[in-house]
């Protein structure tokens, strides 16, 4: 059995397990949808009062908001195993058992759980993004291929953060909640136009954590909106690749972490 069909089986088992409690599942899904929609209500209220967010219309902000939420929802669905890695694998020592299996630890951890709950965030983000495109006057034809490219780039970046977070657990044993600053905090930052932020934060969000490269710049290219800070539009066509580069870098960190792993188990 190759890695892919193994993963498919683990994912199928995980989905079956989650659907075993349909009532709870439906409630969680609705809760997830409503929670994330409420956060857009906050942004919408700002528009109601001030007319624009620093000169950006609601269409553009809705597209940004949708992009970052859809990307994060995909990463959250796939990367649950990395999110709980510190507490459930390193601290308990059960990572030793994964190492005994003749498969890549990355595949085994991806198969930890295919989490269905983020579907709520995904649907809500897609819904807001659709409304954003509908409200924007100059949507470019490149959107057809740029949108999936940006979403996969974004999902890769957030998955990279989760893998990096897990790799950090080799040092800290317990998971560090500070990393939430990059995941949930990243979503929070990504839904606003980059130009609003101070220069140090703009640089951090482009070159250290390539959040704007998978969200802000592709959105500009899709909406035919020139960048007020002067970055040429073609940058947005290429920049989602930086999300994959970030993922690659984090996978390297992960492999170094696994190589130096010393069990803490019983």
């Amino acid at each position: 059995m190759n890695a892919f069909s193994l993963y498919r089986r683990m994912a199928a088992a995980s989905i079956k397990a989650q659907l075993r409690y349909p009532g709870t599942f439906a409630l969680q899904l609705i809760g997830n949808f409503v929670t994330t929609l409420l956060s857009f209500f906050g942004i919408w209220s700002l528009f109601q009062r001030f007319g624009s967010i620093a000169g950006w219309d609601i269409g553009a902000v809705a597209v940004l908001y949708g992009l970052v939420n859809v990307s994060f929802a995909i990463a959250e669905t796939l990367g649950r195993g990395f999110e709980v890695f510190g507490g459930e694998y390193v601290k308990t020592g059960s990572f030793d058992r994964l190492l005994l299996r003749p498969r890549s630890t990355l595949v085994l951890l991806l198969g930890h759980e295919l989490r269905l709950r983020p579907i709520g965030r995904f649907l809500q983000g897609a819904f807001v993004m659709g409304a954003g495109f509908w409200l924007s006057p100059h949507v470019s034809w490149a959107t057809v291929w740029l949108l999936p490219w940006a979403v996969t780039g974004g999902a890769a970046m957030f998955l990279g953060v989760l893998i990096g977070q897990a790799a950090l657990c080799f040092v800290t044993v317990e998971g560090l909640e500070v990393v939430n600053v990059l995941t949930y905090g990243g979503v929070e930052a990504g839904q606003y136009p980059l130009t609003m932020f101070a220069r140090w934060l703009r640089r951090f969000l482009t070159w250290a954590l390539p959040l704007s490269a998978v969200c802000y710049y592709p959105a500009l290219a899709m909406l035919n909106h020139p960048d007020p800070l002067g970055m040429p539009l073609w940058f947005g066509l290429l920049s989602p690749g930086m999300g994959f580069a970030f993922l690659g870098l984090m996978v390297l960190c992960w492999q170094r972490g696994v190589a130096g792993y010393v069990s803490s188990g019983s």
């Binding site: 001030f50 600053v181 905090g185 929070e188 606003y192 609003m196 934060l201």
Partner: peptide, 18 residues
Amino acid sequence: MWFGAISLMAYAAVYHHA
């Protein structure tokens, strides 16, 4: 601090622009 800073920059941008 992080969430606070992001909200603050957002409010500052919104207020200065309008």
